[in-house]
């Protein structure tokens, strides 16, 4: 998840995982969430939500170039593109696997901050990109 979390290689960030934030199963794009790995149920991973159900996502190295995220699933990616075990590897993940949302960094003290929803422009789902282009044309 570099550089949003663990920007230093040798210093680990501790985050506060908020379980209540996902009780309603409302997952938003750009949130950082923790989930049970679909490949290994004993492992927990932390990723950023890139697409929610119904979104058209341009994948990076998945077997399909463009995928529509199926019902009840989301598309998750690590920020460190290419060095991350994420949806580009195992495909869309079921929302039921999500355990919590990371809401703030609590340790080390020099990195105290809330984690804000953020999605790089290059990773915005295609269905939203085309809408914003239309918006610009109308403007």
């Amino acid at each position: 998840m570099q550089p949003a979390l663990n920007p230093d290689k040798d210093q680990a960030d501790y985050v506060f995982l908020n379980r209540w934030a996902i009780k309603s199963n409302e997952i938003r794009r750009g949130d950082i969430i923790s989930l049970i790995s679909p490949k290994d149920p004993g492992q927990k991973i932390i990723k950023r939500v890139v697409g929610v159900e119904g979104d058209l996502v341009a994948t990076l190295g998945y077997r399909k170039e463009i995928i529509r995220v199926p019902e009840g699933h989301c598309w998750i990616e690590g920020d460190h593109t290419g060095h991350s075990m994420d949806s580009n590897n195992f495909g869309p993940v079921s929302i039921g696997l999500i355990t919590a949302k990371a809401s703030c960094i609590v340790w080390p003290p020099s990195r105290w901050q809330l984690i804000h929803s953020f999605l790089p422009d290059s990773r915005v789902p295609l269905n939203l990109v085309s809408k914003s282009i239309i918006g610009i044309v109308q403007f």
Binding site: P41, G42, S94, G96, I98
Partner: peptide, 19 residues
């Protein structure tokens, strides 16, 4: 503890609808 074997009846969250 992930000790599920073939033939077990299990309760799971629906993959297409987490509720």
């Amino acid at each position: 503890t992930q000790r599920i074997s073939r033939g077990d009846i299990i309760i799971a969250k629906c993959p297409t609808n987490p509720k």
